[in-house]
């Protein structure tokens, strides 16, 4: 029986996202040329929520997209397994845009490396910033987040998952022993 512990509940997630929304606006001095891109699958719902919050604060629509990085992974062909490829939707070239990449958990940094390579195929962004709900450490690449919900030191045999109502469960962040 795996030991499971809830480290962030629905309210905690909500407050973190609100703070991150304000931080993004403060750091970028508004929404000009800003686009929020959620990384499939964990970052998509979070990106949507951030967009809603930012729109509500600024009173203006904000551009958004989704990015699936499966084909850019550095381990894509190492096993026979091919996970389902999600939808990439980037509505226009990214030249001169400020991209906010959104993911649920920042871990080794390989997903973000793959995401940046993917973004570069869509244009030349002016800036790429990273927003994550949880930073669990153990970086294998020199990559860091600009906006963090919570830093959660973890051990390698633990598994951290962000569950959201959009995916049919309660909003919560859970640590399980591996």
């Amino acid at each position: 029986m795996k030991k499971k512990k809830v480290v962030m509940d629905a309210e905690g997630i909500e407050r973190s996202l609100t703070r991150i929304a304000y931080e993004i606006l403060e750091h970028n001095k508004g929404t000009d040329n800003l686009i929020i891109i959620g990384i499939c699958k964990g970052g998509v719902s979070l990106a949507e929520r951030l967009c809603e919050k930012i729109s509500a604060i600024e009173g203006a629509e904000i551009m958004s997209g989704t990015l699936d990085i499966t084909l850019y992974r550095d381990d894509v062909l190492t096993t026979g397994k091919r996970p389902a490829i999600g939808g990439t939707y980037i509505p226009f070239p990214l030249d001169h845009k400020r991209v906010i990449l959104v993911d649920d958990v920042l871990f080794t940094g390989r997903t973000i490396r793959a995401a940046m390579d993917a973004l570069m195929d869509f244009g030349r962004p002016e800036r790429i910033q990273l927003a994550v709900l949880i930073d669990r450490g153990h970086r294998e690449f020199p990559i860091r987040a600009d906006f963090i919900g919570e830093a959660l030191p973890s051990s390698l045999w633990e598994n951290i998952s962000v569950n959201l109502t959009d995916n049919g469960s309660e909003d919560e962040v859970v640590i399980e022993e591996g």
């Binding site: 850019y72 389902a84 490829i85 990439t88 070239p93 390579d117 195929d121 869509f122």
Partner: peptide
């Protein structure tokens, strides 16, 4: 899911 790649400006994945 591969169809989308052929609609991009850079029609290539690595």
């Amino acid at each position: 899911s591969f169809k989308e790649i052929s609609t991009r400006t850079i029609k290539k994945v690595p």
